[in-house]
């Protein structure tokens, strides 16, 4: 659980770094110092945070998911509906019901 929480925190860090870089890039647009040290530093920070997030994702589920996708099997521990979007859709034809039973009196 700690790994998952840390992954979410790193994800928020990535968003914050991207926002800061966008702020620096756009507010310096049109000036002569468009590639200043702040922008370069934030670019490095953005790349680093993305790499860190990828590492966290790999360690917290990524390997398991890839393993499942390669093997194609998983232990079903929870019931599911019959399809990803179960229920009647417009134009969807459910299986044909059986014919009505004979009169009980017969």
């Amino acid at each position: 659980m700690t790994g998952f929480a840390l992954t979410w925190i790193v994800f928020l860090l990535v968003l914050a770094v991207f926002a800061a870089r966008a702020w620096v890039v756009e507010t310096n647009r049109g000036r002569l110092s468009t590639a200043g040290s702040a922008q370069r530093g934030l670019t490095v920070a953005a790349v680093g945070s993305v790499v860190l997030l990828v590492v966290m994702l790999t360690a917290n589920g990524g390997i398991e998911l890839v393993d499942l996708l390669i093997n194609g099997e998983a232990t079903v521990t929870a019931p599911s509906d019959q399809a990803a979007t179960g229920g009647q859709q417009p134009g969807e034809a459910p299986p044909a019901p059986a014919p009505p039973p004979a009169d009980p009196a017969n």
Binding site: N60, G62, L65, G72, A74
Partner: peptide
């Protein structure tokens, strides 16, 4: 990977 973990752990098919 994190939020829908239960989904792919149980219904990868």
């Amino acid at each position: 990977l994190i939020g829908a973990r239960d989904f792919w752990m149980t219904q990868i098919s």
